[in-house]
């Protein structure tokens, strides 16, 4: 196998991996704020693409405006979902929240099915079709957008987490919710913010991919599972770990196709995930959290 082919596999892995990373970030943010897994994360991915298509094709907005509308509308929906479905559950029991998000994901995809129909819908590429050559391997221009948007989102998130008061409050909330509340952090608000951010990241991923794959009401769950696996692989609750987990998972899939078999690529990725968890239950970059008695 030549170097060009290897590079091509690498690029495919990088592209898929950065999508998984964006979705995984959403899981990690909500987990940090609530201690629960948000199983509606895949639906935010679906809505980001679907609402952009709706704004572009049905409302007739120009593409950049339609894209912003799609992501913003999904972010608002994420906040509304938290306020309407999660917040009423006052004790914040993670198990209850998980069940609520499972139900929420069904409601969101059924609604999308009713409003936007059962067939897949296209969106044009952001800056035209075509591909660029990278040392003999080729990369679609849209994939460059995907990589760029992921990098930008990660940088923005890093800035928010490390350089702003809101970010510090979110981190405090993740470390110890009760202590954060005592020092005056509005922990309820932090949960809402985490859902809005998770929805935004999921929507960005869905928007970036739609020009390549089209979108339809039921794309959420399969991407949701990949993102969840990536978040676990990296280590839940840590944004950098989510990105690493996503990229590792994407590369793993790509390399399994290259060297083993495309039929078993998901199984191989899953086996690696399980073995990593067996050896390091906290994920690749996760830290041991010893239970204190």
């Amino acid at each position: 196998m030549g170097g060009t082919e290897l590079l091509q596999f690498g690029l495919a892995g990088l592209k898929n991996g950065s999508i998984y990373a964006l979705v995984a970030l959403g899981f990690t943010l909500v987990y940090a704020a609530t201690g629960a897994i948000n199983f509606a994360q895949g639906e935010f991915y679906m809505l980001g693409g679907m609402l952009s298509v709706w704004a572009y094709a049905d409302l007739g907005l120009p593409l950049p405006l339609a894209a912003v509308t799609g992501v913003a509308a999904t972010a608002v929906l994420g906040g509304v979902f938290e306020l309407a479905a999660i917040r009423p559950r006052k004790d914040g029991d993670p198990l209850a929240i998980i069940i609520i998000t499972v139900g929420g994901s069904m409601v969101l995809s059924s609604m999308a099915r009713h409003l936007f129909g059962p067939t897949e819908r296209p969106l044009p590429a952001f800056s035209g079709g075509g591909s660029v050559k990278v040392f003999g391997a080729s990369l679609e221009v849209q994939s460059v957008w995907i990589l760029g948007m992921t990098a930008l989102a990660v940088a923005a998130l890093w800035y928010l987490y490390n350089r702003t008061g809101l970010g510090r409050a979110m981190r405090a909330c993740a470390v110890n919710r009760d202590a954060a509340r005592i020092v005056g952090v509005d922990t309820r608000l932090m949960v809402t913010v985490s859902f809005v951010l998770a929805a935004t990241l999921g929507a960005l991923a869905g928007l970036a991919v739609t020009p390549l794959t089209q979108t339809v009401f039921d794309v959420g769950p399969s991407v949701g599972i990949k993102g969840f696996a990536a978040a676990i692989l990296g280590g839940l609750g840590n944004p950098i770990a989510a990105v690493v987990g996503g990229l590792v998972l994407g590369m793993l899939e790509s390399l399994s196709i290259a060297f083993i078999s495309s039929t078993y690529k998901d199984a191989i990725a899953l086996i690696v995930l399980l073995s990593v968890l067996f050896l390091r239950p906290q994920g690749i970059l996760g830290r041991w959290r010893r239970e204190k008695v």
Partner: peptide, 15 residues
């Protein structure tokens, strides 16, 4: 082969 829901088949096509 690829799975329903896959978003990229460049690896398979490269082979």
């Amino acid at each position: 082969s690829f799975n329903p829901g896959d978003t990229d088949m460049t690896a398979q096509l490269t082979l």
